[in-house]
Simulated scan of single mutants.
Amino acid sequence: MTNTNSFRPFQHLGRIWVHLVLCAYAVIALFPIALILINSVKSRDAIFDNPLALPSADTFSLIGFEKVLHNTNFLLYFGNSLVVTLSSLFLIVLFGAMAGWALSEYKFPGNRWMALFLALGIMIPIRLGTVSILQLVVTLNLINTRTALILVYTAQGLPLAVMILSEFIRQIPKELKEAARCDGVGEFKIFFQIILPLIRPAIATVAVFTMIPAWNDLWFPLILAPGDDTKTVTLGVQQFIGQYVTDWNSVLAALSMAVIPILILYVLFSRQLIRGLTSGAVK
């Protein structure tokens, strides 16, 4: 009989190696964010002299935040990004869950073809259709509006949302839904009162994966909504970057204020996100 105790040192070494790799990846991923936050509260000379040093009493400066808040419409840009991101997120989760419920629960002609069509949306970048999207937005008289960005980001995030949410809905026991139908509960109540609460980890996963691209996007705000009243945070930061001179204090301050909300939302969704990513592995 093989002695299992002899394999335990190798198991411990394997776990240590996995943790080291994950820690190294975390450091690599968090290093740029930490660098931005550290240098956003330093003077311009200190940024170039030693960008890796922590701010001290001599190098500490909030000049970048003062310029951003007093000399620009940053709060307006921040509000535009917040409205666009949260509205897109709400529509993606709502329509994605409804489509996932329909594709996983009901059998109808073209069910598999529709699922395949939505899966193609994950593989084909939406930016390939920029010209057609721009023509459609101009035709609908939605240029320089937040509505145009909300519609584009909703269409961009729906394929992934439908794929993730439909898989989670399929894992819900059929007996639970059949019992609700036997009690006379309608389909809408089953969906909103039973299905949605049970797929909260999947919703958190979809929220994180669709929220960050919408918040950080520069391409579509630059093309569809470049006006002063509809600029997003990412587009607003570009005004501090010039061809010959760049106001790095303002750039880093604006980026810091743009990063903090995403970090807060990620922390709020992190527990549900981990449950959503690992639930398939423990079933």
Results as ranks from 00 to 15, higher is better:
residue 5 N to M: 08
residue 7 F to H: 03
residue 8 R to P: 00
residue 9 P to C: 11
residue 9 P to V: 00
residue 10 F to T: 01
residue 11 Q to R: 13
residue 12 H to T: 05
residue 14 G to S: 00
residue 16 I to E: 01
residue 17 W to Q: 10
residue 23 C to F: 07
residue 24 A to S: 15
residue 25 Y to W: 10
residue 31 F to V: 00
residue 31 F to Y: 15
residue 33 I to F: 11
residue 34 A to Y: 10
residue 35 L to H: 00
residue 40 S to M: 07
residue 41 V to G: 11
residue 43 S to M: 05
residue 49 D to T: 15
residue 50 N to K: 09
residue 52 L to Q: 13
residue 53 A to E: 12
residue 53 A to S: 10
residue 54 L to N: 10
residue 56 S to I: 14
residue 56 S to N: 09
residue 56 S to F: 03
residue 60 F to M: 09
residue 60 F to A: 14
residue 61 S to K: 00
residue 61 S to E: 08
residue 64 G to N: 05
residue 64 G to M: 09
residue 65 F to Y: 15
residue 65 F to R: 02
residue 67 K to Q: 11
residue 68 V to R: 08
residue 68 V to T: 06
residue 69 L to Q: 06
residue 75 L to D: 10
residue 76 L to H: 07
residue 77 Y to M: 13
residue 82 L to N: 03
residue 82 L to P: 04
residue 83 V to T: 14
residue 84 V to I: 13
residue 90 F to Y: 09
residue 96 G to W: 04
residue 96 G to D: 09
residue 97 A to Q: 07
residue 98 M to F: 14
residue 99 A to D: 01
residue 99 A to H: 05
residue 99 A to W: 13
residue 99 A to I: 13
residue 100 G to P: 07
residue 103 L to R: 02
residue 103 L to A: 06
residue 105 E to A: 09
residue 107 K to N: 03
residue 108 F to R: 01
residue 109 P to N: 00
residue 114 M to Q: 06
residue 114 M to S: 04
residue 117 F to L: 14
residue 117 F to D: 12
residue 122 I to P: 05
residue 125 P to R: 08
residue 127 R to D: 08
residue 131 V to Q: 04
residue 136 L to A: 10
residue 140 L to R: 12
residue 141 N to I: 03
residue 141 N to W: 03
residue 142 L to C: 12
residue 142 L to Q: 09
residue 145 T to N: 06
residue 145 T to V: 13
residue 147 T to K: 07
residue 148 A to I: 10
residue 150 I to Y: 05
residue 151 L to W: 02
residue 153 Y to W: 08
residue 154 T to V: 02
residue 154 T to N: 06
residue 159 P to I: 00
residue 164 I to D: 03
residue 168 F to N: 11
residue 172 I to R: 02
residue 174 K to R: 05
residue 175 E to W: 05
residue 175 E to C: 08
residue 176 L to Q: 10
residue 180 A to I: 08
residue 181 R to K: 12
residue 184 G to P: 14
residue 187 E to Y: 08
residue 190 I to P: 00
residue 192 F to C: 14
residue 193 Q to M: 09
residue 198 L to W: 03
residue 202 A to F: 02
residue 204 A to R: 06
residue 205 T to M: 13
residue 208 V to N: 03
residue 208 V to G: 07
residue 209 F to E: 01
residue 212 I to S: 03
residue 214 A to P: 07
residue 217 D to Q: 07
residue 217 D to G: 10
residue 221 P to K: 06
residue 222 L to M: 15
residue 224 L to D: 04
residue 225 A to D: 10
residue 225 A to C: 03
residue 230 T to L: 11
residue 233 V to G: 09
residue 234 T to M: 10
residue 236 G to P: 12
residue 237 V to Y: 11
residue 238 Q to D: 10
residue 238 Q to M: 12
residue 241 I to M: 14
residue 243 Q to I: 15
residue 243 Q to D: 09
residue 245 V to E: 09
residue 245 V to N: 15
residue 247 D to P: 15
residue 252 L to M: 07
residue 255 L to D: 00
residue 255 L to V: 00
residue 258 A to M: 12
residue 259 V to G: 13
residue 263 L to N: 06
residue 264 I to K: 02
residue 265 L to M: 08
residue 266 Y to M: 13
residue 268 L to M: 05
residue 272 Q to A: 13
residue 274 I to V: 15
residue 276 G to D: 01
residue 278 T to M: 06
residue 279 S to I: 02
residue 281 A to Q: 02
